[in-house]
Design a protein around this nucleic acid. Structure first.
Length: 481
RNA sequence: CGGGGUGUAGCGCAGCUUGGUAGCGCAUCUGGUUUGGGACCAGAGGGUCGCGGGUUCAAAUCCUGCCACCCCGACCA
């Protein structure tokens, strides 16, 4: 048996030598997903879906608070609609899936499975919008989209993923811009205040922006392996689509005008971000506000007298506080097995209650994030745990921020950038002249990309790190998922 | 699309060189003993050996065609 134990430890500690392997191991062992018979499509099992539900819950609440309503548009988009916005179709055409038959009949016009819904939504907005009095349109939809990716990875890139996409119309450019930034701000809140992942907010370069957008804003997070993950995007689409789809309204001045347009989205990819930004070699570490189970109580009951009753009482206390708690009183597995199981699944807090604790009127409290274990009086346990969950959130955020800072360097030229990307991957801060040519060179020579021009730029030099010309912006560069 | 590899029980694999009863570990089920860091004993169930063809008295094993999946090199939330 000692041998089995050793193998288990070996398997889960692969992170040091192979991050990708560690990532898929964690996902497999935590029973979040399964792989479908169709390549690139994922089955979300209860534990995986619960994570998404909690993300949905946070976003939906914030969307409603900012005046948005949920709607639903169809899965299939006629080819002619997809083709209306030129840049958009060029961007998405290579990766759309097509429906060509209805029953045994070949369709006259083939239908694409939405890779995103701008086109179908705009076609309906064109029909609906008449007057400036109806503006703004503030709609969001929860849906899944299909993009026929060549290479897939669980949560980070599949051919179908769950997401939300907001699509709004406004009277002025300024209003649309304000909306674009407001929604990016909500994504930042989600990442930092809910998932405990620090992010860099900023604007995408022209080459990296959404197909059909005037400008694209992003939040970028850094993973354990030094790669960046785009974790939410918000686009100011200006009139690109509203003109192409002839969305018009009669304004106060009696003139027919095209409204300004935004769209913004975030997806199940965020679950991948949580795994890769917080996990360790024992498995998942869930931030408390996301965790489907925040506290697991493991009764240790060689003789059972009183222990289970006390565990149930504690469960009740925590539930009354609104804490998501699970009492695992199954007798199939040993306490040791349960400890490992819930650590692997990332449950933030574990309570152990056994005869020894009962005698002292305490419970053992074990934190998942730093693996510390201490005794806690049963009299004040609900208060203690409630506070502890907030502490854990903050500590996880601080730790992730510290890690990001340790992986962020300023580079002065292409050589330094290349060196960083090869030897100590992470974010590089550098100056950039703004030219597409220099951007291409970065990508060609280092395989990294400009992640964004941050809102908070620092002047880390005077000239472009690539061409030496006059610098326009400071940018974050990294290899990306 | 080019290079390499793998298909055998739910999962992970051995067996193939040199053809001859389908095997191991985990998981599952039953009974019992256990329970403070992945418990133990005893028993049981579970297989078109990826698919098709060929050679042979006999094929998981040899030959052949096909299929699927994985890894490495060009696009992407």
């Amino acid at each position: 048996m000692a041998k089995e134990k050793k193998e288990f430890v070996k398997e889960i500690t692969r992170m040091e030598d192979d991050f990708a392997q560690w990532y898929t191991d964690v996902i497999r062992k935590t029973d979040m997903i399964d792989y479908s018979p169709v390549k690139g499509f994922l089955v979300l099992k209860p534990y995986g879906y619960a994570l998404w539900e909690n993300i949905q819950g946070f976003l939906d609440r914030r969307f409603k608070e900012t005046g948005h309503e949920n709607v639903y548009f169809p899965l299939l988009i006629p080819e002619s609609l997809l083709n209306k916005e030129k840049e958009h179709v060029e961007g998405f055409a290579p990766e759309v899936a097509w429906v060509t038959h209805g029953g045994s009949e070949e369709l006259q016009e083939r239908l694409c499975i939405r890779p995103t819904s701008e086109t179908i939504i705009c076609s309906m907005y064109a029909k609906w919008l008449k007057s400036y009095r109806e503006l703004p349109y503030l709609y969001n939809q929860w849906a899944s989209v299909v993009r026929w990716e060549k290479e897939t990875r669980p949560f980070l890139r599949h051919r179908e993923f769950l997401w939300q996409e907001g699509h709004t119309l406004h009277e002025t450019y300024e209003e649309a811009q304000e909306e674009t930034l407001r929604m990016l701000g909500i994504y930042r809140e989600l990442a930092e205040d809910f998932l405990a992942i620090p992010v860099v907010s900023g604007i995408k370069s022209d080459k990296e922006k959404f197909a059909g957008a005037e400008s694209t804003y992003t939040i970028e997070a850094l993973m354990h392996d030094g790669k960046a993950l785009q974790s939410g995007t918000s686009h100011n689409l200006a009139k690109h689509f509203t003109e192409a789809f002839e969305i018009t309204y009669l304004d106060r001045d009696g003139l027919l005008k095209n409204p300004y347009h935004t769209s913004w989205g975030s997806s199940t990819r965020l679950i991948g971000a949580v795994i890769m930004a917080h996990g360790d070699n024992r498995g998942l570490i869930l931030p408390p506000r996301l965790a489907p189970v925040q506290v697991v109580i493991i009764p240790i009951m060689p003789h059972k007298e009183g222990v289970l009753e006390k565990a149930r009482a504690v469960e009740g206390l925590l539930k009354d506080r609104g804490i998501r708690v699970k009492l695992d009183d199954s007798e199939n597995n040993s306490p040791g097995w349960k400890f490992n199981e819930y650590e692997m699944k990332g449950v933030p807090v574990r309570l152990e209650i056994g005869p020894r604790d009962l005698a002292d009127n305490v419970a053992m409290v074990a934190r998942r994030d730093n693996l510390q274990k201490s005794a806690c009086s049963l009299d004040t346990i609900d208060e203690t745990i409630a506070r502890l969950l907030d502490t854990i959130h903050q500590d996880m955020f601080d730790k992730a921020l510290k890690e990001r800072e340790e992986k962020t360097f300023t580079v002065k030229n292409l050589e330094e950038l290349k060196d960083q990307m090869e030897n100590r991957p992470g974010f590089a801060k550098m100056m950039w002249c703004g030219s597409g040519a220099c951007e291409d060179r970065i990508k060609m020579e280092t395989a990294a990309t400009i992640r964004c021009i941050p809102f908070e730029e620092e002047k880390v030099g005077d000239c472009c790190a690539v061409c030496g010309g006059e610098a326009k912006h400071m940018v974050y560069v990294a290899k990306a998922y």
